[in-house]
Amino acid sequence: MKLATKLRVAVLMGAVGLVETLCQTGAIARFTMIPPSEMASSLWRLLYAGKLQTDMTRTLLAVCAALTAAIVVGFVAGAVVHAIPRVRRTIDPLLSAYYSVPVFVFYPMFIVLFGLNDIPKIIIGFLYAVAAMTINTLNGLDRVAPVLLKTARVFRMGRAATGFRVVLPAAAPYLFTGVKLAVAYSFIGVVGSEFILSSGGLGYQIGFAYHNFDNRTMYALILFILGLVMIVNMSLHAWEKMLMARRGYQ
């Protein structure tokens, strides 16, 4: 293991230990924070009793819906915009300004339009993720080396064959980055919306527990969501590294 990795593990473990001590000794009051060990045991009980299943399914389904739509729409939009320079010229500045807009402010509008169901949070998750996919698709297509396209012509390849056999694999690393970001963003959009105002889902349950002063459940849920998202993000990161290593990049 690298020295930096060892140090990182040590620092993180030290931080958790410190919080544990502060909570156990009462330096941090119980109604502010419960010790990390209790968060974990409380989460274990919730999982064991199967109390999270309904909300977890609901959140994950919403994330999947937002993510799928974002990947499909983002990829198609990227490919179309890339093919039409005039549209590209108009869209480019908007894409670079996209993430400066606080997308969550549209949430109240969608609630009034569609009602307090899962549709508004799926739309917010989609809106958060779709631009990342579009931007990275454009980026990937931009970076296909011209000499590879020339090579395809030397092999007398048609448009479809060039697209599938040369352009797509050449752009693949960037498309993967787009997907990775889209996953993180759709989680942020969906869980954030649930937390602000919704009728169910993991984010909603955190808010519910907070309003009922149920710290044990609240901290267990926070631990669960953050753990879940981090595991998903890190798995994608590791997969990406494996793919890149297979191409010989370190």
């Binding site: 020339k150 090579t151 012509r153 030397v154 694999p169």
Partner: peptide, 19 residues
Amino acid sequence: GVVPESVGVVFQDDASFPW
């Protein structure tokens, strides 16, 4: 407009497929 079948081309830029 079409590369004849009996012709092979090698370019200056690296044209090996990294995948």
